[in-house]
Amino acid sequence: MTARPLLAALALAATLALGACFHQDSKADIVKKAEHATTKDELRKALGDPDTLNKAGPLEEWVYEASDGVVRFPILGERVGPVVTGEKTKK
Rank of each mutant, 00 (worst) to 15 (best):
54 N>S: 13
79 R>V: 13
62 W>F: 13
3 A>Q: 15
87 E>A: 03
36 H>I: 05
4 R>N: 06
31 V>S: 05
21 C>D: 08
42 E>Q: 15
84 V>C: 00
47 L>S: 02
75 I>F: 03
6 L>F: 08
15 T>Q: 08
49 D>C: 00
45 K>P: 01
90 K>A: 10
63 V>M: 11
66 A>R: 04
7 L>D: 05
54 N>C: 04
42 E>L: 08
28 A>L: 06
20 A>L: 12
13 A>G: 12
21 C>G: 02
32 K>F: 08
10 L>T: 07
50 P>D: 11
20 A>E: 11
90 K>M: 10
25 D>Q: 11
81 G>L: 06
19 G>C: 07
61 E>G: 07
2 T>G: 15
56 A>E: 13
23 H>F: 07
25 D>E: 11
16 L>A: 12
38 T>Q: 13
17 A>W: 11
41 D>F: 03
35 E>C: 00
80 V>I: 12
46 A>E: 04
78 E>N: 14
69 G>Q: 04
45 K>C: 07
35 E>H: 06
81 G>M: 09
44 R>I: 15
49 D>V: 06
66 A>D: 08
66 A>M: 09
9 A>Q: 14
34 A>E: 10
73 F>P: 05
86 G>P: 10
33 K>N: 13
22 F>K: 06
49 D>Q: 11
73 F>R: 04
83 V>R: 04
50 P>A: 06
39 T>P: 06
7 L>E: 10
